[in-house]
Design a binder for these strands. Structure first.
Lengths: 221, 221
DNA sequence: GCATTTTTAGAGTGATTACTCTAAAAAGTC
DNA sequence: GACTTTTTAGAGTAATCACTCTAAAAATGC
């Protein structure tokens, strides 16, 4: 594999494990047993590494968020979307961990990210319209944008939420399993809009993603 | 005013304006025309300043999130809760801007924050139960925790969302007016649970917090 | 007015880190 | 094998920043 790719892979891994801020370019180089000069031969600066990783992430997400044109959506699609999106978020989790800082320091990334956001939001809205067309949801057009936006917020904030509110301080073990609770919360957003025909089925499905009860029960505290 | 208070006030202002990370302790001192030594006489370290500011924030929020015991909740309460919470978020907006980093570097704050979170979540759930008891919402007990959690996520992520997705890169002018859209989104979460008696009234109320349409419409992009 | 405590100034320090510079090694070309 | 280009090494640098240290000034108590 080319040095450039190895730098990107190592950066991604270190960023994900430790957070972008805690990983110096020298650390990336020494992790790969190459010199800082070598790293800077391939990338003009740290931001360029992050930008390339974002492009990977973007491609991955947009690839998932396609709405089929030849058939109507099913509940299976819904689950598949969410699992794939959360898997992508997991793979590039350093991004949303510190998005504000990354964007503040990088105007080019900021512009691209905002375009990406608008694109995603439109796709999510299209998916919701597709679910409505398939009589899975019953929702007014005027509510679709709001629901799509809430979905975006919950999805992109989920890992941050976990790390801040549910993980012990010394415990860095954010695991893919913890994704499940995020999927549950997104189902929760859509649940009230389910048509009677699908309500029973979805409720049962949603239960599979139920967060462990000791987590978040408000009744006993 | 005591030097200690002046340090806290100046820190809050600078943190809010520039982000905690971009504000050095030396910068706080020189902003107040005092020496770094003086600052460190009053606070052992930067984290201690942040911790004290968090305590202020916590007290402010918990003061707002009271459920009246002598009467049932009204729609006016609902609006008042949201406006007061968002005002508090605004006043201490540096906190949620970089919460993960702040907590990672400060175990004591992390523990306190998690306790605060659980407390808030329970209060939000109580408010939802109160709204159900007042026949404003119709919601199953088993859905309350999930709705409360989504409310927490949307509320605490709103400013971050604005800065990442809606503000121009050179534009630091996050304004209190932009809060309104956050309130709209929280209404959006609860809207499907409204009883018929209140649906009309709330929908009209919600419209007042409507984000400007060019913002987030998915229909024209 | 003297003694003690509290508050302040301000120079300095050690650690970190993104990035540079020079030159050597390796790879490719003919 | 001579050359050109690409890739690499690694020492170094300038800036930043949280925090320390010493000693002077100010406030307080009696």
């Amino acid at each position: 594999m080319s040095t450039k790719q190895r730098i990107l892979d190592a950066s991604l891994q270190l960023f994900n494990d430790l957070g972008e801020r805690k990983v110096s370019t020298n650390a990336i180089a020494s992790h790969l047993d190459i010199s800082p000069g070598n790293l800077y031969y391939h990338f003009n600066n740290k931001q360029a590494i992050i930008y390339q990783l974002f492009l990977r992430y973007e491609a991955r997400v947009l690839d998932v968020l396609q709405v089929p044109t030849d058939r109507s959506l099913t509940i299976t699609d819904k689950v598949r979307y969410l699992q794939a999106i959360f898997a992508g978020l997991w793979e590039y989790r350093f991004l949303h961990r510190d998005m504000e800082h990354l964007l503040h320091d990088n105007a080019e990334l900021h512009a691209r990210y905002q375009q990406f956001f608008r694109h995603c939001l439109a796709r999510v809205a299209d998916i919701l319209r597709g679910l409505a067309a398939a009589h899975i949801l019953r929702i007014d057009e005027q509510d679709i944008d709001g629901l799509a936006l809430n979905t975006w917020i919950v999805v992109t904030s989920w890992f941050s939420f976990l790390r801040c509110n549910l993980l012990q301080h010394d415990d860095d073990s954010l695991s893919p399993e913890l994704l499940q609770g995020g999927i549950y919360q997104v189902f929760m957003l859509e649940q009230p809009y389910l048509t009677d025909a699908y309500r029973e089925h979805m409720t049962q499905l949603q239960r599979q993603f139920m967060p462990r009860p000791e987590w978040l029960s408000t009744t006993q505290s």
